[in-house]
Design a protein around this nucleic acid. Structure first.
Length: 309
DNA sequence: GAAACGTGGAG
DNA sequence: TCTCCAAGTTT
């Protein structure tokens, strides 16, 4: 903690107290949520809003309550159950992680950051989050919500830097409560504050428990010093990949590769969901399909394409 | 380190 | 309508 430990301690109290009174009731926060359930939620929540995760999460946990349950299934089942959550490689990596946990960790999610970090699809954030939320470790959790709260509250800036800097993680460690239990609560409390109050656009400062302590408020709420560059989407390979995956998820049988590659203009009504949307240039459709196969999200045997088993 | 990687709700 | 953005990871 540093020279301003007393001041930061007051902020710990205010934000943690706010969390106790305002936190959402989410299934992965219940006392019954297993480490595996929490791990599943963390995978699904990567770059994906809570409201869209909720229904998929519930069905996933009911169907595969332990890592070994998922590990026993072919990858195709995970990809289908993932539905339209987006970034299907997360489902692929979650499946791979379940296999690894079953094989090397006795079927139990490991409890240390280092062990978690070694699993497929688990980066610095997810390892810290699982260790904290599932095992009570006082790790330093840094996600997009926490980065934004720190940038405003401690940094006086409207937004964090486009790319995380080393100084951000140093500051996160400095403001971390020294007490184990307080630190554990702090991680989720700051994240929730960022999600509900200290939001990216139009933050609800009148509801903020640390309004009086906020450096951004004190500075007069200056504008961001950069303009975020939007994520391109229309016409990208990602869009075409998504459409191909949608077809494969809905098709009970392998799909002729030609149906993805041939010119669909004027073709009879598509046999598979979404197929008629595949109006991208031939070269792009070829590239997207090849990419999916390269990434192990699809397989091709002879002229047929199917989900990987 | 930049770029790629899905999807759909909100403003 | 269109842009922004949501509990990131991997190459």
């Amino acid at each position: 903690m540093g020279a301003y430990s007393g001041w930061v301690h007051r902020i710990h109290e205010l934000i943690n107290h706010w969390y106790r009174n305002h936190a959402r009731q989410l299934p992965w926060r219940s006392a019954e949520a297993s480490p595996w359930a929490i791990m599943v939620s963390e995978f699904m929540l990567q770059q994906t809003p809570v409201n869209r995760v909720l229904p998929v999460y519930t069905q996933w946990i009911a169907r595969w309550p332990e890592p070994a349950d998922l590990a026993a299934e072919p990858l195709s089942e995970a990809l289908i159950a993932w539905g339209r959550l987006g970034y299907p490689r997360r489902a692929q990596r979650l499946h791979a992680a379940a296999v690894e946990i079953t094989r090397s960790h006795g079927g139990k999610v490991p409890g240390t950051e280092a062990e978690l970090r070694a699993l497929p699809g688990v980066g610095d954030y997810t390892a810290a989050a699982i260790a904290c939320f599932a095992f009570g470790e006082p790790t330093v959790v840094v996600d997009t919500n926490i980065r934004r709260v720190h940038a405003r509250l401690f940094g006086g800036a409207a937004l964090p830097e486009p790319h995380p800097r080393a100084s951000e993680f140093r500051r996160a460690r400095e403001v971390q409560p020294s007490d184990r239990h307080t630190a554990n609560l702090w991680n989720i409390s700051v994240m929730e504050l960022g999600a509900l109050v200290c939001t990216a656009r139009s933050p609800k400062c009148d509801e903020c428990p640390v309004f009086a302590q906020c450096a951004w408020i004190a500075a007069g709420r200056p504008e961001p010093h950069y303009t975020p560059k939007g994520q391109s989407w229309a016409g990208t390979d990602r869009q075409v990949r998504g459409e191909i995956m949608a077809v494969l998820r809905h098709s009970p049988e392998p799909v002729p590769a030609a149906s993805f590659l041939e010119d669909l203009t004027g073709a009879p009504a598509a046999e598979y969901t979404g197929l008629q949307k595949l109006n991208a240039p031939l070269e792009q459709r070829q590239r997207a399909l090849a990419g999916l196969i390269q990434d192990g999200l699809a397989m091709q045997s002879e002229t047929l394409v199917h989900l990987p088993r």
